[in-house]
Amino acid sequence: MKKMKKKRFERRHLMEFFVKSIMQTALLIVAGALGLILWAVITRGLPSLTWDMVSQVPQGGYYMGKEGGILNAIIGSIYLAAGGTLLAMLLSLPIALYLKTYLGDSKWGECVRLSLDVLWGIPSIVYGAFGFALMLTLGMRASLLAGVVTLALVEFPIMTRAMDEVIRRMPADLEQAALALGSTRFEVALHVVARQTLPGITTAILLAFGRGIGDAASVLFTAGYTDRIVTSPMRPTASLPLAVFFQLGSPYPEVRERGYAAALILTVIVLLVSFGSRWLSARLAKYTIK
């Protein structure tokens, strides 16, 4: 038989080596981009990050470099994102459960999924403009409530699709077993599916919360901005992404530096939510059948 010696310098083997190296480089570049982003935001934001930043509201002259912080924006953002997430849950949970227990992979189910994916793809600036158009029509002004509603629109397709994905991965025999034991479909949805997929649902909710807290374009028109901590849903509120955005647009260098610090705060919050959801779903997963 012919010798099967490797001809290292044969064209196709060189090609294999070459292509594989390029692919590894590409993956490293993408992964490296994350490192670059975090490094840039941390090194630039850390020097101006003070306790005042997170414990004070803007004082007089804050936007010209005087004292104060962005507590108003942090609290506003938490209200906005929490409100938006709660509102989105009211829509998402029933849709995701209905998709699983009643629709499955039927035509109508696919149609609902398609519309959710399309909603997911609509940029938040369009939701913002939509919210603004509604406010114009209703004669409303920018307020926490309007921001919450708009954010809920941004968040709910993300949340629903994420829930749908985990719920769909649930073993079918578990549902069958529950049905065979004499549960109605509604009870299956409520008790079996909901409980079994709790970790996935939690992840989906936190994913949407993270998206909501970082979104600027949708709250730009609808929630407004104010230096005071919001007290009523009918009043405008500041938000963290807009605090970053406005301060980075300032002509004063001190204000810009604090904008970077605000970006760092926002990044930390988002990362905490992201890792938190990972940790939480791993903990909750103990009670589910794999």
């Binding site: 038989m1 012919k2 010798k3 099967m4 010696k5 490797k6 001809k7 196709r12 083997h13």
Partner: peptide, 19 residues
């Protein structure tokens, strides 16, 4: 295969599979 170890160091997998 014919006395040659196909898991040897210098063996080309694709040649093995061709054969």
């Amino acid at each position: 295969v014919d006395g040659q170890n196909i898991y040897g160091r210098d063996v080309d997998v694709t040649e093995v599979r061709k054969c």
